[in-house]
Amino acid sequence: MIKRILKNKLGLSGLLIVLFISSLALLAPFITKYEPISLNIEEALLPPGPEHLLGTDSLGRDLFSRIAYGARISLSVGFVAVGIAVVIGIILGSIAGFFGGIIDAVIMRFTDIMLCFPSFFLILSLVALLAKPSIYLIMVIIGLTSWMGPARLIRAEILSLKEENFILALKILKIPTPAIILKHLIPNALSPVLVNATLGIASAILVESSLSFLGLGVQPPTPSWGNILMEAKSTLGVAWWITFFPGLCILITVLGFNLLGEAIREELK
């Protein structure tokens, strides 16, 4: 499948973008000249140039360093949040799909109810419960509010799979139920979740940056793309680069995961 995605033009560009941002995040300490949080008031608000590749902010911090370290935050929030959502989705979806009946009805009604809340409202309410939002709590909150898609997909897959002959055969062979679910049903039901998870990373990154932008996510001085943009508000009209580059990074990263997700979807058809 990977080979075919590489042949798909959009998929290939998506993969390249994801690889690019990932290496930016991984190599951040090696490719940056300045510490992301080291202040230097004498060099405040410098436009992009050879010394500071993307310029500096109002406290003289190097924007390129901050963006590179911010990539670590965005990507880890994306992956961990989606990981949590997928695990919850797999557990609830497979239980609902396999056992059916009242268990299924209860789980699916709960899913419907969760889908009724505007997800950003729900996330903000949960953030409001915390004394101080930390990056780990943000990951958990985004995960806890986005498992509904994966749960529905897994359930639908398992509903159709459990009628297949090979599952029937396993049941006749008296293979224990947990083994059937874990070893045979879930692995076969995962492919549509892969698409959902890839697109989910993109939206988790958007949510995290929106939260940090509102001051309710990753707290300064730890740089995240969202809180760099929050601080950019005060230099609006003076320093275009502080607004432009972090947002562009969010756009490119989200674009990359979306393109990759679409390409996987095409391939699975």
């Binding site: 958007l206 940056s209 929106s210 932008f213 943009l229 972090p246 989200v254 979306n258």
Partner: peptide, 8 residues
């Protein structure tokens, strides 16, 4: 358009 953060 999909990828553009609205606050940006």
């Amino acid at each position: 358009g999909f990828a553009t953060p609205s606050f940006w």
